[in-house]
Structure formats: C-alpha cells, structure tokens
Amino acid sequence: MDVTDSDVLAAAERWRREGRGVAIATVLETWGSAPRPVGSRLVIDAEGNFLGSVSGGCVEGAVVSEAAEVIAAGRPRTLEFGVADETAWKVGLSCGGKIAVYVEPVD
C-alpha cells in the first residue's frame, strides 16, 4: 500500500545485483500502538546504508547493526524490541510499544 515500500524492495534487488551484501527487515508483529504497521520493511546493505522504516526511527539503529551480522552469517533472525514506557518516549516509540522484526539476507 505504501509507495515507499515499493522503492525499498526495488532498492534491495538493485543493491544485491550491484554485488552488495543486503538484508531486508520486516515488522512481524507489534504490541501496543507501534509507529509502523506489520509488514513494513527496511533494506540495509553491508555498509550500513538503509532505506525504508520499521519503527519511524527508534530501533532502526539496532536493526541496521544486527543486519550486518545477518548478512555475514547468511541466516535470518528475529529481533524483539520491548521498550519501557519512559525509554520508549525518549527514543521515539511514543506509545511504549513492542515490535518483532524479521531480518533476512538477500542471497
């Protein structure tokens, strides 16, 4: 539904064809009012460049660093971010939401 998501997947394919290591992160589940819906995607390359969004900013940093390991290992993993209310407000998950993100390599 999201034009940006379309660009994200096109970028993932283009980056991989350019020979870059690429991972795709997808929001699997959310609890509470998370900022991005289930199915939202983020594409990351081995250099840490990224496009798209899984949380509107707050866990992107953590997902990007995990993605480097996923690209290196060549195996997917599921990350869960549960954030206490106060911390959540500080980092941008204004709702104190929780999200699970699936990070997979493009191979």
Partner: peptide
C-alpha cells in the same frame, strides 16, 4: 530472501498485481 524470489515479487509489483511472500519462520 532469494534474489530470484525478490525479483519475481518486484515484477508483480511493477505490474500492479497483488503478491504474498510466505515465510516459514523456523
């Protein structure tokens, strides 16, 4: 995601057709 599956998904999107990526999480 395999590159060929990603390419097939992008082709569906470019053609304005719905598609579902089914992932066995285990």
């Amino acid at each position: 995601m395999r590159l060929d599956l990603l390419a097939a998904l992008n082709a569906e999107r470019a053609a304005r057709r719905a598609a579902v990526v089914v992932t066995e999480l285990a």
